[in-house]
Nucleic acid binder design. Structure first.
Lengths: 116, 116
DNA sequence: GTATATGCCTCTCATTGTGAGGTATAAGGA
DNA sequence: TCCTTATACCTCACAATGAGAGGCATATAC
């Protein structure tokens, strides 16, 4: 991992909702979508993503359906529910506000570090 | 709390190091410093901050000393160690990179949400 | 008398990312 | 032939950590 794993906590589910806003994807594809859309910076293990997907479906932010494949493992496609879209919108605003607040605190430091 | 608590995970210790870059502070003061410097957006409970301070001192990112007070509780002041300053610098870079990566994924969504 | 502020601490609880393991098929190279 | 890699799903034990409640003590204010 490129980042301290704790940073991801709380962001994982929102990232999943985010990449699903473009249309349905299956689990394995979601991992790759996040990796690619983040510019190869964010990388999730399957042990993080599958449990997260189950929780999101349990909370009715996602719905899923199986699509059998020939000669390769079956795929479970996930789609945002209306409830999930609302949660995603809220998560985007929350992230913007949160990262801005953290940024404010860190800005002060940058000055001091440069100064001394 | 204004934010989902999971968002704070992994950021708490870095925020503490950050506000201490301006000079030594005691625990109670650190909570207020983060609240103020974040524009009243970030609020930590004592149950989060004190254990974090102990961990940071255990890892030698901080050192501390008691200062007795008259008629009010004694204060435990914390100071960044050289090791702590290095960790802080790394944390700032990590945050910048991490928040940028999350931002990339979320940008794609914003377009889609607005579109439909 | 009761609440609020100061200032430290500890404890349990729930959440969640990691990493390893399991299952199964197919394609490629040594 | 054998081994690795890729696909695609899953579970489980582990560690980190923020929340919230509780404890202790003093001082001020209503």
């Amino acid at each position: 991992m490129k980042y301290a794993s704790e940073l991801l906590k709380g962001t994982t589910k929102n990232l999943i909702l985010a990449v699903l806003s473009g249309g349905e994807l299956y689990g394995y594809q979601i991992v790759k979508a996040i990796r690619e859309q983040s510019g190869e910076e964010l990388e999730f293990g399957e042990g993080s993503v599958y449990p997260a997907l189950h929780a999101l479906e349990r909370d009715e932010y996602l719905s899923s359906h199986w699509v059998p494949q020939d000669g390769s493992p079956d795929r479970k496609y996930y789609t945002l529910t209306p409830k999930g879209k609302l949660v995603l919108k809220a998560a985007l605003l929350e992230w913007k506000s949160f990262s801005g607040a953290v940024g404010k605190v860190f800005e002060n430091v940058a000055l001091l570090v440069r100064a001394g």
